[in-house]
């Protein structure tokens, strides 16, 4: 119970400071919109083609925008040695990690729920045909990417060229979740349910979430404290 409260305190702290400054949220949302617009030049936005690749397009946008949020997650604690203060505070490293992951999860979800309608308008897509399943896939995959991203954000916080290293390391790691999410999102946006053959992708995302959450929770203490 105490652990949960500590986690929520960290998450609330991160969200509060983000809501007051809006520095990464604004950047991530505008970045997402820019990429959505850019994609209209890469493919013919009115064609059937866009239906086939809607999932891929959306998740690339989310992954790129997500990197902006994740980059700031631990980097923002570097000023005034806030990270040292957090590490020495009487909460376990894993609670600190989960709190930060939760905050990033909420922020990235906000970016997704803002980008979806914009995508629908720009590309003339009726994307709300399977809203519940779509939301479930979005949330599951977003948790997967934020866990990996937050962990690697902690890992790379003291690095030279941090902004470059984080995306280089996280994108290959995220591929299982991204791959599954792209496939499922395309199916769901086109209004089909999830056929029996494609359940493996749902299992893949759930497995990814469980494996990497437990790995990260076990190892994060070592990364933060040493």
């Amino acid at each position: 119970m105490r652990y949960l409260r500590q986690t929520l305190t960290i998450a609330a702290k991160d969200l509060r400071s983000e809501i007051r400054t809006k520095e990464s949220l604004n950047a991530a949302i505008s970045f997402a919109i820019v990429i959505l617009v850019l994609f209209s030049f890469a493919v013919d936005p009115s064609s059937e083609q866009i239906k086939e690749m809607s999932g891929g397009l959306l998740w690339l946008v989310f992954a790129f925008a997500g990197a902006l949020i994740l980059n700031r997650s631990f980097a923002r604690e570097q000023n005034n040695d806030c990270l040292d203060a957090l590490v020495s505070s009487p909460i376990p490293g894993s609670a600190l990690f989960l709190g930060k992951a939760l905050a990033n999860f909420v922020l990235l979800t906000v970016v997704e729920f803002v980008s979806m309608p914009i995508f629908g308008i720009l590309y003339n897509m009726d994307w709300m045909r399977q809203p519940l399943w779509l939301a479930a896939v979005l949330l599951l995959a977003t948790w997967g990417i934020t866990v990996i991203g937050t962990m690697f954000s902690a890992l790379t916080v003291n690095l030279r060229m941090r902004e470059l290293m984080l995306p280089t390391l996280i994108y290959p790691m995220m591929i299982p979740a991204l791959m599954a999410a792209m496939r499922l999102t395309t199916l769901l946006i086109n209004g089909e349910g999830i056929p029996a053959d494609d359940w493996i992708w749902v299992k893949l995302i759930v497995g990814f979430d469980i494996i990497f959450t437990s790995l990260a929770v076990t190892l994060v203490e070592i990364v933060l404290v040493g």
């Binding site: 890992l155 060229m161 290293m165």
Partner: peptide
């Protein structure tokens, strides 16, 4: 291998790359 090049302090490098 890239991560290893980006960390100067040997202990931090060993720790971070072990986790990775």
């Amino acid at each position: 291998l890239m991560l290893r090049h980006a960390v100067d302090d040997p202990t931090a490098r060993a720790k971070n790359s072990a986790v990775l």
